[in-house]
Amino acid sequence: MNTTTIQQNIIEDFEILEDDFEMTLNYLMELGEKLEEYEEKNKTDENIVKGCQSKVWLSYESKDGKLFFSGDSNTSITKGLLSLLIKVFSGQTPKDILDTKLFFINKTGLCRFIGTQRSNGLEAMENKFKVIALSSK
């Protein structure tokens, strides 16, 4: 599935929440909980995403020219956001990752509570995916 379709699916999933702040937070935390367990040994300085208020780790494997990501965070809500980015970017080629514009954040109502202080963290996460893609090209 291409990243546009994946993002459209995410937007549809969020529509049920009707912009309710509390329901959105709970849903995000559930998504985070469903993320595949991240191995402790991967919680290295190299894998840490710099620029987030909370701790976020991201690592990847390359298979058949495609990148597969795994990650973790010490906060549940950030972990939920990270899981959405993993959903979009995992299984894509480095070129597709670099070409992807993230539009689902603005269309899911997530932007409303990602606030000015926190959006830097989200940007830092997106950048980490793209830096990995760039170095794997």
């Binding site: 702040f21 509390e22 937070l25 549940s76 509570f113």
Partner: peptide, 21 residues
């Protein structure tokens, strides 16, 4: 069982303003 950052957002969802950090 809850990071202060999660706590701050979850309380905000209930209209409660606390500081975190």
């Amino acid at each position: 069982n809850s990071h202060f950052y999660d706590l701050g957002l979850l309380l905000d969802a209930k209209g409660i303003a606390v500081r975190t950090g």
